[in-house]
Structures are given as structure tokens and as C-alpha cells.
């Protein structure tokens, strides 16, 4: 129960949520709600693992994860952007489809073989910083470092670049964006695809780095849905997404680790002596998601912040905006 080790592992575990959440932020900022994150993550985890088992190359595995999850997201894009279907139902269908596809193609994959994990390394100078160094920069997977880079990049891209401004315009006021000469349909497809690739990357990060292997649905065990909840808590901002994701990661690790030792902080560990209490520990991430969602919703009400104005509304050229 070393807090440093828990936080270190928590950051690693939170990286999965981070990729999925930032991906969903891109998609939702463009105005397309994609509830299929869980399905896309499973497809990502499955294809990353099977390609890596087959080729021995983790990089190829990650590419496959991003490609197939992105492809799945494009299906949602087609149905919700061009066919103007209800995005909630389409996202649910995408979840079913992703879960079903990954179960069918992942049949027998859990016994398919072993893989070399993605490289783990320690950053020379930064790891020497007290407290922060051992948690953030010591023996972390390469994916964790990619996560660190993704947050500021996504934040800067969305808020301070021209394409980022177009992205926001398409999600806030597609009619005006169209009048400005932005191709609303094309941008929406693009960011739905981006969201899919990041969800796939999240899945690949699980099966190749964080908890390696393929355990059918238990591979993600609802993390895709937690990510969808985190987007609301994050108020569509990558920095807050990072905060939420790492906190959740640490919580997950604490729950896993707290059942092991006989003594915690000098006390007899109740979770060790009453193993059935573990069921209540299992509930915590999901209960915590609800709490986080309540916080996010209250804050949004108070500050009059909120979702991108056109979130979930199909854009029809030539029709009045909503």
C-alpha cells in the first residue's frame, strides 16, 4: 500500500480513460455524440492484441486498433451525419456492434499466445524531481508519455488554431460555419473518425500495456462508459479530462491494491478479512462516475456553461438551425 506506487500505477491506468475521453471530446466538440466508446475500445483492444500476437509488432497492433475503431466510428458518422438518425440510439447500436464483433473475432484470442509489452522507460532528468518524478516519469509505458503530450496538444489545437476554431464552429453553430465556407459534413466525419481512433488507442493501451491480454468484455469492463461520463465532468476541456482520468485511474488501482495486504496504515485491513466487502469496492468507480457527473452538471448549471450548442443535432443544409 505504498501511495507512490498506487499513484504511479493509477496514472498508467488513467491513461486509458484519458485517450477515450479526449477522443470523445473531439467528436462532441464537432457536434456528434458518440456513445459507442465502449464498443470502439473493445474493438481496439481486440485488434491490437491479435495483430501484435500475429506480427510481434506492438506498433502495428496500435495502428490496427486505431484503424478498426475509427472505421466503426465512421459507421456511426454515416448514420448520424447523413442519415440524421438519433445519435443516442446509433451510439448504443455501435456499442452492441463493437462488443459483438470483438467477441466474435476475439474468440480463442485469450489463449492465442504471449506478446512483448510496449516499451517501459524512465525519463532521465524528470524522474529525479521529488514526489512527481517517481509517479509520473519512472517506469511508465510509452503510452503514458503519449498521454502527457496529447493533453496540451489537444487543448492548444481546439482553442488556439484555425482548424480548432472550425471544429468548435461546426459544433456550436453549423449554419454559420457553413456560411463561412466550412464543410460541416466533412469536418464532422473527420472528428468522429478522430474520436474513434483515440478510443481504439485506449483499447490498445489496455491490451498491450496496462493489463495485457484479451479477456473478452472484461477487458474494458465499462471504462468506455466512464469516459463518456468524464467528458461531461471535463466540460469538454482536455485538461479537466486529464484530471478526471488520472483520478479515476488512481481510484481503480487503490481498489485493486487495498484487498491484498493484511495491514493498512497500521490497522488490520477490513477488506482482507472480509473479502465479500470487495463487491462494494467494485461499485466505487461506477458510483464515483455518478458523483462526478452530478458535480459536472451542477457546475454547468451554475456557470451557464454547457455542451456544444449543436451537440446531438444533425445538420441539414438549407434547414433552419435549432
Amino acid at each position: 500500500m505504498d501511495p507512490i506506487i498506487i499513484l504511479q500505477a493509477g496514472v498508467a491506468s488513467g491513461t486509458v480513460l484519458l485517450f477515450a475521453t479526449v477522443g470523445a471530446i473531439f467528436s462532441e466538440r464537432a457536434g456528434v455524440l458518440n456513445l459507442g466508446v465502449e464498443g470502439m475500445m473493445l474493438i481496439g483492444a481486440m485488434s491490437a492484441f491479435s495483430v501484435t500476437v500475429a506480427t510481434g509488432n506492438g506498433g502495428l497492433g496500435l495502428l490496427a486498433a486505431m484503424f478498426f475503431a475509427g472505421l466503426l466510428a465512421l459507421l456511426h458518422g454515416l448514420v448520424s451525419i447523413h442519415f440524421q438518425a438519433d445519435q443516442v440510439v446509433s451510439g448504443l447500436a455501435l456499442t452492441f456492434l463493437g462488443v459483438g464483433l470483438s467477441l466474435v473475432f476475439g474468440e480463442g484470442l485469450s489463449k492465442a499466445g504471449t506478446i512483448t509489452l510496449l516499451p517501459v522507460f524512465t525519463v532521465p532528468v524528470l524522474s529525479a524531481i521529488p514526489f512527481v518524478g517517481p509517479i509520473l516519469f519512472t517506469k511508465q509505458s510509452v503510452m503514458v508519455y503519449i498521454g502527457y503530450a496529447l493533453v496540451p496538444l489537444a487543448w492548444f489545437f481546439i482553442n488556439y488554431t484555425r482548424p480548432g476554431m472550425h471544429l468548435r464552429a461546426v459544433g456550436e453553430n453549423p449554419t454559420a460555419a457553413d456560411a463561412m465556407g466550412i464543410n460541416v459534413y466533412r469536418l464532422r466525419y473527420f472528428y468522429v473518425f478522430v474520436g474513434g481512433t483515440l478510443a481504439g488507442l485506449a483499447g490498445g493501451t489496455i491490451s498491450l500495456a496496462i493489463s495485457p491480454g484479451w479477456f473478452s468484455e472484461l477487458t474494458t469492463s465499462g471504462q468506455g462508459w466512464i469516459a463518456v461520463g468524464l467528458v461531461i465532468f471535463a466540460q469538454w476541456d482536455p485538461w479537466r479530462a486529464a484530471f478526471g482520468s488520472y483520478t479515476f485511474g488512481a481510484l481503480r488501482r487503490t481498489i485493486l491494491d487495498i484487498q491484498g495486504p493484511t495491514i493498512v496504515f497500521g490497522f488490520a485491513n477490513p477488506f482482507y478479512y472480509n473479502p465479500y466487502w470487495g463487491f462494494f469496492l467494485q461499485m466505487l468507480p461506477y458510483a464515483f462516475t455518478i458523483i462526478v457527473l452530478i458535480i459536472g452538471s451542477r457546475e454547468a448549471l451554475r456557470k451557464r456553461l454547457g455542451a456544444p450548442a449543436a451537440l446531438g443535432v444533425p445538420y441539414v443544409r438549407g434547414e433552419r438551425g435549432h
Binding site: V89, V99, G106
Partner: peptide
């Protein structure tokens, strides 16, 4: 039926086709 995910997959495809086909109603 093996693989075991088949019924889930078929359910997913059916739902997807249903909402996609809705466009023909409009």
C-alpha cells in the same frame, strides 16, 4: 452457437440497420 458473441453481434447489426433504414421513411 460458436463463437459465443454471434447473437450479440446479430443484435447489434439489426439495431444498426434499423436506425439506418429509418432514413427511407423520411
Amino acid at each position: 452457437i460458436q463463437p459465443s458473441g454471434v447473437p450479440r453481434l446479430i443484435q447489434g447489426i439489426i439495431l444498426f440497420m434499423l436506425i439506418a433504414s429509418d432514413v427511407l421513411m423520411r
